[in-house]
């Protein structure tokens, strides 16, 4: 379990992390979500005792990272896959980490095989592709068989196969009862990987809870209905207090769930051709919540200025 309380980090006059409190539970994958520059990496560095908080405090299973004995046995982390010496082989990189933690050499081959780097273990890490570097970073994180795992943007730059592999891998780690904390700036990725979410923007906590709840809260769910007597249905719905909007040959109903709409149609003897709840888009939810906290905002691309212009 990771517990942050009032975590704050200033770099000069810039506030990177602002009074952040959250907990990351065991046996689940917890996503750490926020736009680029929101303070995710800084927070992770503070969890690992690399950066000292300006104020506040973060503990792992009740202990500060710096007080852990042989910390790699408790916490494994992949913050940046390029943090390896380019002229040192993958195996040698793991060897010194293992030596510092008094792990047997056999463990090195185990983790190398686990991440599929066994064949290139004696090659210099400088020649690795980003995907291979990520795998090496994950091998280093797993080396001490830790209960707590931290990954900073692990799917960045990976091909679809690699992304799928990491996703499965994290679920497996969580299923083994470990604490898995993964950061990302992509909600769609987190929706498929994480069960819980910690969402931050500009260093401040925006949301903590389950992914499902986050999506439900952040998006307005609507129900799509089609009927041969659409106009009549619309009148009844309005009268019952629902909001409606035209959607081609269908109505988009808000403020009333599909069960209530079905019952209303039955009592009024209206035939329904379709009655389907619509789940809001994840990206919409994310932008809706973090919209005010994006550090580097872009204007809408001015497509209209070209001669063709958007026609659709």
């Amino acid at each position: 379990m990771i517990e942050a309380t009032g975590l704050t980090k200033h770099y000069g006059r810039t506030v990177a992390v602002d009074n952040l409190s959250f907990t990351v539970g065991e046996g689940r994958v917890t996503g750490f979500l926020g736009p680029n520059g929101a303070g995710k990496s800084t927070t992770m560095r503070m969890i690992l005792g690399l950066d000292s908080p300006t104020s506040g405090d973060v503990r792992i299973d009740g202990q500060h990272y710096r007080d852990l004995h042989q910390p790699l046995r408790t916490v494994g982390a992949l913050l940046d896959a390029k943090w390896v010496h380019p002229n040192r082989s993958a195996r040698a990189h793991l060897r010194w980490l293992a030596a510092a933690t008094k792990l047997p050499r056999s463990r090195i081959d185990q983790v190398l095989d686990l991440v599929g780097l066994g064949a290139v273990a004696n090659k210099n890490a400088g020649g690795f592709s980003l995907g291979m570097s990520q795998r090496l970073g994950i091998a280093a994180a797993l080396l001490g068989d830790p209960r707590v795992l931290l990954f900073d943007e692990p799917v960045n730059g990976l091909d679809p196969e690699g992304i799928l592999w990491i996703r499965k891998f994290m679920h497996q780690l969580a299923d083994e009862g470990r604490t898995v904390f993964v950061s990302s700036h992509l909600l769609s990725e987190m929706a498929q990987t994480a069960q819980d979410l910690v969402v931050i923007g500009r260093g401040k906590l925006i949301y903590q809870g389950t992914v499902d709840e986050f999506i439900a809260n952040a998006t307005e769910s609507t129900v799509l209905v089609r009927s041969p007597t659409l106009e009549k249905l619309g009148e009844h719905l309005l009268a019952a207090g629902a909001g409606i909007s035209d959607d081609g040959d269908a109505l988009r109903v808000s403020g009333m769930d599909s069960a209530a709409i079905g019952e209303l149609a039955a009592t009024r003897q209206i035939v329904l051709h379709e009655l389907s709840p619509q789940v809001g888009s994840l990206e919409q939810a994310f932008i809706h919540l973090t919209g005010d906290t994006v550090e580097y905002r872009t204007e809408e691309p001015a497509l209209g200025t070209t001669e063709e212009g958007p026609t659709a």
């Binding site: 910390p71 390029k82 943090w83 390896v84």
Partner: peptide, 12 residues
């Protein structure tokens, strides 16, 4: 090369 962070992670 950033390995100092791995060092301090392994040996706080």
């Amino acid at each position: 090369f950033g390995t100092i962070r791995a060092t301090f992670q392994a040996v706080p």
